[in-house]
Amino acid sequence: MTETRYLAAQTLDEAIGAYAAAAGAARILAGGTDLLVQMRSGVLRPGLIIDVKKIEEMTAIVPKADGGYWVGAAVSGAVLAEHKGFAATWPGVLEATNLIGSKQVQGRASIGGNLCNASPAADSVPALVAAGAVASIQGPHGRRELAVEHLPAGPGRTHLKPGEVLVGFTFPAHPKGSGDAYLRMIPRTEMDIAVVGLGVNLTLAGGKVTAARVGLGAVAPTVLLVEDAAKALIGSSLDERALDAAAAACRAACKPINDKRGTIEYRTKVAGVLLKRTALIAAERAGRK
């Protein structure tokens, strides 16, 4: 049995230094709601656990001058939900994070951990993708930015390089007339894994969609940005034809698995249904009459 060490890193440099030096034997600890479950089941016994919750940048929520937001990767869902400004701007992102587990789990679970754990069914990720959130990543060789949809590489795998830590997210300014929403389909109403999860973020001007993004989860090895669905919505007044076309684009993007929660046919069909429902909620939040 290897010995586990624990480090509560005080700075990002300290965390990255230790992470890189441990060469694969270390794990980052944010809320621990995935990590501790994996350790307990015996899948994982890290040589070093690096707690990042004392690093200010990683636990801060900062409104930016342009109307955007910085959200540290280790901010818990419960803390994010209590931020009035963020809650008013990104209700869909919160809707998604507040679906993660119970109140107890939300007290710890972070959106950074949700993304880095790289489950195809991670609830916050389609909403982050729809929001156009950009991940800030720092490693031994410096800092880089990556759109959230480019970070997952497959179930349980990311494009983070050795020694790289996800520091946080930049949310773009939300122009007037914008709204976002997230819906997931699960077999029961609480505490289950998504059969399909879908996030929509759109902007309306004079009743027409001027910008849209659609994030789709649990129907492929990674969460997807469905650009064809966005294209079908942009320029429309969200009439039946545009919604049908966007739903068809979501169905076409699906490469799901068959499992006890849903068959391939079911998941594919639900993806289209959720697109329509979610887009209408986002439009209502954007101020559509």
Partner: peptide
């Protein structure tokens, strides 16, 4: 269930060192 600085959490998903 316990509270950690007033926030409800599962003590089984928290390290004692934290």
């Amino acid at each position: 269930s316990i509270t950690l600085d007033g926030r409800l959490v599962c003590s089984c998903l928290m390290l004692a060192v934290e």
